[in-house]
Every structure is written in C-alpha cells, then in structure tokens.
Write a protein that binds this DNA or RNA. Structure first.
Lengths: 220, 220
DNA sequence: GGCTAACCGGAGGATTTTCCTCCAGTTGAC
DNA sequence: GTCAACTGGAGGAAAATCCTCCGGTTAGCC
C-alpha cells in the first residue's frame, strides 16, 4: 500500500501533493465566486484565470463542468451546515441561532449561490448521496430552530420553513460589481425584524414547500 | 407630409404597421422575461423564438442588442414610474403608497429586471436623456413617499432611500423555473413588516447611496 | 543536494454558439 | 386590387468555448 494512500477522506482532496491540493481549493473558491456573479455557465477558462492557475490544471482536477459544480456545491453545503451547527450549538436560544444562520447565509451569499447552481446540482444530487445527506442535515436543523423559536414565542407564528428557505436564496444584484456588504446587512436586519413575533397581520397562504430532491422529471 | 407621419411619440413605436407594432411589443416582452431569467447575454435568437417571430424581424426592429436592452429598459422604467405614480395618487397615505409600490416592484420583478440590465443600461443612459429623466422621476417620488411616511411615523425612522432601492432589486431565484408567486408574496410581506415603525433596534450604518447615473468610468 | 513522480501552464486545433445579412414569399392599408 | 411594408429563416462569417497535449517546473523523499 502506497504511503500516500489513506481513507481518501473527502473524495479528491486527499492523496494530492501539497501544491495540487492548494490549487484545487483555489479553483473551487474562484468557481463559487464566478458562479455567483455570472451564473453556472461561466467559461471555465475564466475560473482558471481567477484562480491563478492554467486551464490545464483545472481540467486535470475536474474533468468536466459538472465535476466542478459538484465540488463547489459540496463546499457550499458544508459551509451552510457548519453555519447552522455552530449557530445551534453556541447561541443561547433558537431565535438567536436562526438569526445568526440567516445573517451568515445572506452575507456569505451562500443561499444565493445555492440558487444559482442548484438546478445543475439536482442531477448531481440524485447520483451523489453525500450531497443529499448534507442538505438533509441542514433542513432538519433549520426546521428545529424554527420549531423552538415558535415555542419560545420569539418568531412570528405564521412563518414556515419554506419562507426561511426562500429568504436565504434572495439574491441582491447590483449594477456591475457585488453589492456593498454594509448595505445588504441593513436589508437583512430589516427582514429579521419582520420575522420577530409581534402584532403583524397574518401572512397570506402559499409558503414554499421544502423537502427532498424531487424525483427525475420526464425528459423533454 | 405622409399621412403616417406623426409626432413620432415613443421612438420606434409609432409609424409602424399594425402587425409590426404588435411584433415589436412581443419582442420587448420576451426580452424582459429572458433577460430576467438568463441575464442580459441571452441569445437574440432565443428571444425571437419566444416572441414567436423570426430572427430577421427582431434584427429589423432592433439593430443590435443595445437597442433591445434600451427598449426593454424603457418599458420597465415606464411601468415602475406608472406604479409609483398611481400608488402616490390613489393610496390614502405615504406608507400605503410605499407599500403598494414595493409590492408591485417585487411581484412584477421590475427591480430584479432592473438589476440585471442596469449595467448595460448605464451606457445607454448617458446617451439617452429620456431614460435618465424617467429614472429621476421615480427616485423623486420614492424619496417623497419615504419622507412623508417618516413624518407620519409609519416608517421606521432609520430606513433610507437606499434601503428601499436595494430591497426592490432583490432577486428570488429558484431552481429551474420562476419562483412561486404566492411564496414570494409572503416574503415581501415579511420585509414590509420589518419596515414598519416599531421598537426595532437601530440599523447599522452604510445604506446604499442612490442617485444620478455615475460619470463615465475610465476605460480599462 | 540530488532524484523523480507528480504537477504545472498555456498554445492551439476542434467544436459549438452566436451573430446578422439577404431575399423569396406574405400581409395590412388604402 | 395594388403595393409598400412586413415576415421568417437559411446559411456563411465571426466569436466564444472546449479540451488535449507536452515541454518545463516543483514538492517530497533519500
């Protein structure tokens, strides 16, 4: 057995020479930024350029666009899960945990990234159980936050998980560059204030359902 | 003077045969939908297809992509202005006007469309005074709504015009198709509740500035 | 320090996408 | 009924994107 072999932890990340592993990471980060800014069809060459590596390196590590989307989606879901878990673990109550989670998801634009690559991820999810598994973990945790926050009377009672999910994916695009951090933060705070229990009028029906990955759609 | 000539109302719309005018309108509507869904780089052929006209027809009416973006942007700004004006005219007070305006902008996705094509519109705006003029009219009206709503004590005092502008451009993308109307509506209502005057904590600094079209950036 | 397997960048040809003109046929307005 | 205006889409030009291949470089181990 070669010295390098291992349990092969997260597929692709282990068993690489140090420089290769570093570049792989740079590529994923660049991909996340560009997917977010330009959509999932952004030229791979541009991703390579932003990562500061050659196009050859990108192709060596990710044989096709789907592999890259898969990796970027996995990294994103892992950050989201980590965000939800630390919030739940460290905040004093469910409302604060939910608030921290939403702030993080919106400021890191994790939800927005999700909304951009999710269509492509759907195909991957059916094939890749680990993606489904992480996604499920996040859903369970957020649902738990909501349930407890309701019980505590901190979250307005008519808010449903689907509402939170939709808010997470809200995308702020501004002419040209990325929107100003601080300006977005203000809007997030306004939304959070709208979520607090109070004497608001009841929300209309029709919350978005959230749940498992849908079964295969019929081919067009 | 030919019988067809006229004051040439909105450029390009008048002096066309009925079928041509109808097709022109269909093209603009298709362009708005696709710009919103796929970004401002969507192939013109796809726009023609969705409009149900040939590619030749599209090119005859809009010599290049910019002309189409210009027309779509103009139509969008006109609807926004109309929305702001009717809200101001027909609602009993500034808060209700602002609420109606925001609901409309978010549900019609006018702000989102704006955010998609605004980068391209910027160039057009410098050249096209009528775009600047409409845009300015909207800004003035919304600022007036905010000012009055503040005076009435209905809008939380730390909300600034830039916050409203940013909320307008919020984009809800969902995997695949357009997001469900009713689900989005709920989130809009939550945001509106966050805007109402109450005992919320103060917003952090850093509201987005809004204003005139910026001067020409230096060429890269 | 020296060795070598693993890694790197990017030139460049193949492929796909997008553009945009042109013209034979159709239609609305008078 | 006439005809100027309009229509759709075929198809070649141009541009964008993909993706392989290989000479040169480097990390890791002795």
């Amino acid at each position: 057995m070669s010295k390098r072999s291992s349990v092969a932890g997260r597929a692709g990340d282990a068993e690489l020479r140090a420089d290769a592993r570093r570049n792989r990471q740079l590529i994923i980060e660049a991909a996340q930024q560009l997917f977010l800014r330009d959509g999932a069809d952004v030229p791979l060459e541009e991703i390579a350029r932003r990562a500061g590596v050659g196009i050859g390196t990108l192709y060596r590590r990710f044989p096709d666009r789907n592999a890259l989307i898969h990796a970027a989606g996995l990294a994103m879901l892992e950050r989201l899960a980590e965000l939800a878990e630390s919030a739940w673990r460290e905040e004093p109550d469910a409302w604060h945990a939910l608030r921290r989670f939403l702030r993080g998801a919106l400021e890191l634009r994790l939800g927005a990234l999700q909304s951009v690559i999710e269509p492509r991820l759907h195909a991957a999810m059916r094939a890749a159980p680990e993606l489904r598994e992480i996604r499920q973990r996040i859903i369970v945790l957020v649902e738990r936050m909501i349930r407890h926050a309701h019980q505590d009377g901190a979250l307005r009672p008519d808010v449903e998980p689907g509402d939170i999910a939709l808010m997470m994916t809200m995308h702020v695009q501004l002419p040209g560059a990325a929107p100003d951090e601080r300006a977005v933060r203000r809007v997030v705070e306004i939304m959070l204030d709208g979520l607090r229990a109070g004497d608001q009028p009841e929300l209309p029906d029709g919350a978005m359902p959230i749940g498992a990955v849908q079964p295969d759609p019929v081919e067009p």
